[in-house]
Computed example of a mutant assay.
Amino acid sequence: MNLLIRKAKKHDRAAFQELMEQQGKAMYKVAKAILKNDEDAADAMQETALVCWEKIDTLKKDKYFQTWLMRILINNCNAIWRQRARMIAGGEVPEAAFSEEGYANAEWEQFLNCLDEKYRTVIVLYYVQGFKTREIAEILEINENTVRGRLVTARKKLEVQYRSADNIIRQAEFTEKRLFCMAERRI
Rank of each mutant, 00 (worst) to 15 (best):
A97W: 05
Q22W: 07
M1G: 06
K132M: 10
A104W: 15
N76T: 01
C52S: 14
Q161S: 15
A79M: 09
K63G: 04
G102Y: 05
V122N: 02
C114Y: 10
K118M: 04
N167L: 13
A172K: 13
W53T: 06
K156L: 13
D12Y: 06
S99K: 12
A14Y: 13
L69Q: 05
R163M: 13
K118H: 09
P94M: 02
W81V: 09
D116H: 12
R155F: 09
M1S: 09
N143A: 08
I139Q: 02
L19Y: 03
I80E: 02
I5M: 02
C52W: 04
E54Q: 14
K63N: 09
M27E: 08
Y127P: 08
E109H: 12
M27P: 02
L19T: 05
F131R: 03
F174D: 12
L69S: 00
K177Y: 14
I142D: 05
Y119C: 08
E39Q: 10
I187H: 15
I136K: 00
E144L: 01
Q129F: 08
Q129T: 06
R134V: 15
K61E: 00
A96D: 13
E176N: 14
A154S: 07
W108E: 15
D12F: 05
L112S: 01
W68V: 01
I5A: 00
I5S: 02
K25C: 09
V147N: 00
Y103I: 14
T175C: 13
L73S: 02
E159T: 15
R86I: 12
A85I: 12
Q46D: 12
A97E: 15
E135V: 03
E54N: 13
D38Q: 07
I72N: 00
Q22S: 11
Y126D: 05
R6L: 10
N78R: 11
R178M: 13
V124H: 07
G102N: 06
I56F: 00
N143Q: 14
Q66N: 04
L112W: 07
E184M: 12
R84H: 10
R13D: 03
L4I: 01
K157T: 09
E135W: 06
D43A: 08
K177M: 10
A15P: 00
E18W: 04
A8F: 10
Y64L: 06
I136S: 07
D62P: 04
A79C: 11
A97N: 13
